[in-house]
Computed example of a mutant assay.
Amino acid sequence: MVELIDEPVDVSTHGVFNWILLLTIFSVITVIGNFIGYGHPLADSFIGMGILALITLIGVWLERKLPLDISSIIYISVIGIFIAFPGVPTSETVLYYVSKVELLSIVTVFLAYVGIGMGKSWDEFKALGWRAIIVTMLVIASTYFGSAIVAHIVLVMTGVPA
């Protein structure tokens, strides 16, 4: 079976192939969900996901190739901001196509992937016991309520009726 994510830091042909395969599968599933759930055209959504996947691939490659100790998320963010920044020749095209991909369709696929990844280490999760489940539930609930409180405060401060 092909391992989809390489652990080593070096950049090999096999590692790049695995990332391309993973991003392609992720993109296709996201585009289908985006079409079914939000009615965005398949071609536009696919181009938007292609742009996002390419940015991700470049960011991961830079993290592993450059001798700096910088996370790939920083590279991905900087590349995305740069190519979508007003005045940059790519901004209108990037913004048009990426706006055709709904965040919720991306997150749904990502969470499914994380769930599958957790399923691989189910024995480790069970070894943590019932306390880990309680802590996990409290962290998720606290994050949700904290976000809701902050959002409510910001809405009230900007004049939106509560």
Rank of each mutant, 00 (worst) to 15 (best):
G33A: 06
N34T: 02
N34M: 06
Y38L: 05
Y38W: 15
Y38H: 15
Y38I: 01
P41S: 15
A43T: 14
D44Y: 07
S45L: 02
F46K: 03
M49R: 09
G50I: 09
I51W: 09
L54S: 13
T56S: 15
G59N: 05
L62F: 12
E63K: 15
R64C: 05
L66M: 13
L68D: 05
L68K: 08
D69F: 05
Y75T: 08
V78I: 13
I79P: 00
G80N: 10
G80F: 09
F82M: 14
I83M: 04
A84Y: 09
F85I: 03
F85V: 00
G87Y: 07
T90L: 10
S91N: 11
V94D: 03
V94H: 02
Y97V: 12
Y97H: 08
Y97F: 15
V98T: 15
S99R: 08
S99F: 02
L104E: 03
L104C: 03
S105W: 00
S105C: 06
I106V: 11
T108A: 15
F110S: 13
A112F: 13
V114W: 08
V114E: 04
G117Q: 12
M118N: 11
K120E: 10
W122E: 09
D123K: 14
D123M: 12
F125E: 09
F125G: 00
